[in-house]
């Protein structure tokens, strides 16, 4: 069973009398442990697709199966539970709570999972350590560099042991050196923890870290290439 299965997903925005098709009949499957880059120009529908994969948005047509479950039939709270348990998000703008410390930001998903405060702290500390931010748990986002903030976001995505990380332009606001470090962290998480990583980017350099590149244009998948490389067989 594939981890993610998109069966003819459509997203149509109605503006006045004109229907704007952001996604047109997208068919895709992504297996567990893959490292996928989704590329395309702005307006190509790649972010819309990402939001649907992350259960942040609902498709207007088609079916989206996550671990075999039809997500379309779930209500708000069930979708929230899926985001909580199955999906970790990393955004271009970091999206951290500015008034909370790094530790509290990482604890956030567990707050909605009913864990005790002791357990939360323990797991959050471990997650911060695994992204290389030990000793920074008390810092607030404005006391951290962009790269560090994005690492906090990754720790937050990791902390509930979600099998999927969705990263929407994660290096968009970072310099190239920091970007490289961050991408290496993604690769490490992918190879060592077998976390499925789906990355939206428009930079070829960044997509180079992935094993599979899916290109979007005008709401359609125009190419889907699996790069042959040594480690690919190991994963399959």
């Amino acid at each position: 069973m594939p981890l993610i299965e998109a069966k003819g997903i459509k997203k149509v925005y109605r503006t006045g009398d004109i229907d704007l098709c952001a996604l047109c009949d997208v068919f895709l499957t992504i297996d567990k442990g893959e490292f996928v880059a989704i590329m395309g120009q702005s307006g190509s529908g790649k972010s819309t697709f990402m939001n649907i994969l992350g259960c942040l948005d609902k498709p207007t047509g088609g079916k989206y199966l996550l671990e075999g479950i039809d997500v379309g039939g779930l209500d708000r709270d069930e979708l929230a539970a899926i985001r909580n348990k199955k999906i970790g998000f990393v955004f271009q703008g970091f999206n951290l709570l500015s008034r909370a410390s790094a530790l509290e930001n990482v604890e956030l998903p567990m707050l909605y999972d009913g864990l005790s405060s002791k357990e939360r702290k323990q797991k959050a500390m471990y997650a911060l350590m695994s992204v290389g931010l030990e000793g920074r748990e008390g810092h607030h986002p404005n006391q951290l560099s962009g790269g560090q903030q994005q690492r906090v976001a990754i720790a937050r995505a990791l902390v509930n042991n979600a099998p999927i990380i969705l990263a929407d332009e994660p290096t968009g606001n970072l310099d190239s050196k920091t970007s490289t470090e961050l991408m290496e962290l993604f690769v490490k998480l992918n190879t060592e923890s077998n976390i499925t990583i789906i990355l939206v980017t428009h930079e070829p350099d960044i997509s180079g870290y992935s094993r599979r590149v899916i290109k979007f244009l005008d709401g359609r998948v125009v190419s889907d290439e699996v790069k042959e490389s040594g480690s690919d067989e190991v994963r399959k």
Binding site: R76, D77, A80, A81, F89, L108, P109, Y112, N160
Partner: peptide, 14 residues
């Protein structure tokens, strides 16, 4: 609003 969005993204229910 953004804070609410972040909370919802990481699993806050209604």
């Amino acid at each position: 609003t953004r804070e609410i969005g972040i909370r919802m993204a990481v699993g806050a229910k209604t």
